[in-house]
Simulated assay, not measured.
Amino acid sequence: MTDPADMRREYTQAGLSEENALADPIAQFRLWFEQALAAQLVEPNAMTLSTVDAYGAPDSRTVLLKAYDERGFVFFTNYHSAKAGQIEKNPRVSLQFPWLGLERQVKIRGAAEKISTKDSLKYFLSRPRGSQLGAWVSHQSTVISNRSILEMKLAEMKRKFGDGEIPLPDFWGGYRVVPALIEFWQGRPSRLHDRLQYSQNDVGEWQIERLAP
C-alpha cells in the first residue's frame, strides 16, 4: 500500500513574478487558461465551487466554467439544487482551478449572482439535445431510490418534446461569480511556491500582493 506521506514531487516548470504578471487579473487568467488549453489538460474549464450551508459548513463540488470576462466567471446549474439554495442564503463563494499538469492553481473569491434569462437561454440552446433533456429530467440534489427513475423520466421527456424545440426550464440557468480576490499559484522547488493575489482597493482598482507559500 502506498503511503501518501511518501509521495513527493518537485515543481520546476515555471515561475511567477510581479514583473511578468499582467496588471489585469482577467487578462492574466485568460493567458493561463489558454496555456492550459494548449497543454491539453483534462477539462481545463473544470473548477471547484465552494459554498456554505445553513449550518456554516463548507460544501464543494466540481462545475464547468462556460464563460468569463471582466464581469466574472459563469457556470450553469439547476436553481433548485443544493448549491443554488446555499448561494441564495449566502452568495459569497470561492472557485478553484486545479491545473496540476502545469503546476498551477487559480483561486477566486467573490459573490455569485444569477445571469439574465436571455443569457441562460442563449447557452441552453447551444447545448447538445441530450443535455437539454437532462436539465428537465433531474431534480438535482434530491434523493432518488435508483437510476431507473432518471431513465424513465428521460423517456417521458423525449415523448413530451418529440422532435421539437426543447424550452429552457424556468428552474435552470447560470450564475456569475463576480470576483473580489483572485490568486495565481505557481509551484516552485522546495515548496517555495509563487503566490500573487489580486484584490480591489476602495476605488475598484486591482492591486497585486505576494503571499508567502
Rank of each mutant, 00 (worst) to 15 (best):
A39D: 13
A39E: 14
Q40N: 14
L41G: 06
L41V: 13
L41P: 00
V42D: 13
E43A: 13
E43C: 11
P44Y: 05
P44I: 09
P44M: 15
N45K: 08
A46N: 06
T48L: 07
T48Q: 10
L49Y: 02
S50F: 06
S50E: 03
S50G: 08
S50T: 15
T51Y: 00
V52I: 14
V52D: 05
V52C: 07
A54T: 12
G56S: 05
A57D: 13
A57E: 15
A57G: 08
D59R: 13
D59H: 14
S60Y: 08
R61Q: 11
R61F: 08
T62W: 03
T62Q: 13
T62A: 14
V63Y: 01
L64F: 08
L64A: 07
L64E: 09
L65M: 11
L65T: 10
L65H: 08
K66V: 02
K66M: 11
K66G: 05
D69A: 10
E70P: 02
E70Y: 02
E70F: 03
R71S: 12
R71E: 12
G72V: 01
G72Q: 03
V74W: 01
F75C: 13
F75K: 06
F76Y: 15
T77Y: 00
T77R: 00
N78Q: 05
N78S: 11
N78K: 03
N78W: 00
Y79P: 00
Y79F: 14
H80F: 08
H80G: 07
H80D: 15
S81N: 11
S81D: 10
K83P: 07
K83D: 04
A84M: 03
A84H: 01
A84Q: 04
G85C: 11
G85M: 09
Q86I: 08
Q86H: 15
Q86R: 05
Q86P: 12
I87W: 02
I87H: 03
I87S: 01
I87K: 01
E88Q: 15
K89W: 10
N90C: 13
R92D: 12
V93R: 01
S94D: 03
L95D: 05
Q96M: 15
Q96G: 06
F97E: 00
F97L: 11
P98F: 08
W99C: 09
G101M: 10
G101P: 02
L102Q: 12
L102A: 07
L102M: 15
E103G: 09
E103P: 10
E103Y: 02
R104C: 10
R104W: 03
R104A: 04
Q105C: 15
Q105N: 14
Q105G: 11
V106M: 13
K107H: 14
K107W: 10
K107G: 07
K107S: 07
I108N: 02
R109M: 04
R109W: 10
G110F: 05
G110K: 01
A111R: 10
A111L: 09
A112S: 11
E113D: 11
K114H: 08
K114V: 00
S116V: 04
T117D: 02
T117G: 00
K118T: 05
S120C: 09
S120K: 00
L121C: 04
K122Q: 14
K122N: 11
K122F: 11
F124P: 00
F124C: 01
L125E: 15
L125C: 11
L125V: 06
L125N: 14
S126T: 12
S126P: 09
R127I: 05
P128Q: 07
R129P: 09
G130P: 09
G130V: 05
G130H: 09
S131Q: 12
Q132I: 01
A135N: 08
A135S: 14
